[in-house]
Structure formats: C-alpha cells, structure tokens
C-alpha cells in the first residue's frame, strides 16, 4: 500500500509543482519539490526502492522539461542510490540532518543542471545564475524537506533502518 502511495505522492507533487509552484515562489524562486521528495524518500528506503523511484521521477522531469531525455533520470538514479547507501550507514536521521543533506545535494544537482543545460550550451554565464538561482533554490528545498521528510518517513515506516 505504501509502495503505491509513494508513486501517487510523486504524481501529485508533479502536478502541484507545475501548477501551484508560482504561488509559493519567493522572488521568483520556487522549490524543486520532486527533487526534494526523491532525496527524502531515498534517505528512508533501501537502495533498489530508492533507485527505482528516482529513475521514474527523473524520467518525468526529462519528459516534461529537459531537452536531453535520460539526463535527469541518470542524475536522479545516482543521487537516489548514493543517498540511500549513505543514509543507511553514516547518517543519523532527523529532520535537520535531512534538511542539511537536501541543501548540499540540491546545490550539487542544480550546479550540474546549470552547467550541462545552460552554460555549455552558451545560454548563460555561471556565477550570476548560481548565486541568484541555484543557491536560493537549495535553501528553499531544505525548508520544504522539513515537511516532505516526515511524509517520506511515514511512507517508509516498514522499511526504516537505523531508527
């Protein structure tokens, strides 16, 4: 049941992010809710579960917005696997450490997206969008993770390790 609910949550968050995202933006910056959910879910689940949900989330992002089909799927899968492995062995899981992890990983992910899809393609420089967009997005992602991590934790009650 929780397995179905995990994917239903993904679908609902996708609709919410693409429709209501503009109502919760601060100075034009909206949180990357799907990405935050993938991270939170991965922190509380086994690597295979985390990787499968991450790939599906990445494919949705690719089909919706990316010009390179598979790029986000690949990034999400690696991030999901890495987070799941790291969280199960090294990390003490509470909402604050999860939020800190989300901020760090969001900075890394958005830097990769900025470089691969904008800087290399010649659409933009690096410093301004990194400071004006990637960093504030990461902070906002961290704030959103305080709520989403509780939901991801509840979804994964039967599979939680290390708690």
């Amino acid at each position: 049941m929780n397995y179905v609910l995990s994917y239903l949550t993904l679908a609902v968050l996708f609709v919410l992010q693409t429709t209501l995202g503009r109502y919760i933006d601060i100075c034009g910056i909206a949180p990357d809710i799907i990405f935050v959910y993938v991270l939170c879910y991965s922190m509380y689940n086994y690597p295979v579960r985390a990787a499968v949900l991450s790939i599906i989330a990445g494919i949705i992002v690719d089909l919706y917005s990316s010009t390179h089909v598979g790029l986000n799927a690949l990034l999400y899968m690696y991030i999901g696997l890495a987070v799941s492995n790291f969280a199960s062995t090294l990390m003490k899981k509470n909402v604050w450490t999860v939020a800190l992890g989300v901020v760090v990983l969001s900075i890394l992910y958005h830097t990769v997206v900025l470089i691969t899809q904008y800087v290399i393609a010649g659409h933009s420089g690096f410093v301004y969008p990194f400071v004006r967009i990637a960093l504030p997005t990461a902070v906002y992602d961290g704030v959103v993770s305080l709520v989403l991590s509780l939901w991801a934790q509840w979804l994964s009650m039967d599979k939680i390790r290390g708690l």
Binding site: Q17, G21, V61
Partner: peptide
C-alpha cells in the same frame, strides 16, 4: 495551465 519545473 502549467509552468516549468526548474527555476532556470
């Protein structure tokens, strides 16, 4: 009906 997912 919908907006882009990333802020870039």
């Amino acid at each position: 009906v919908a907006f882009e997912m990333d802020n870039f």
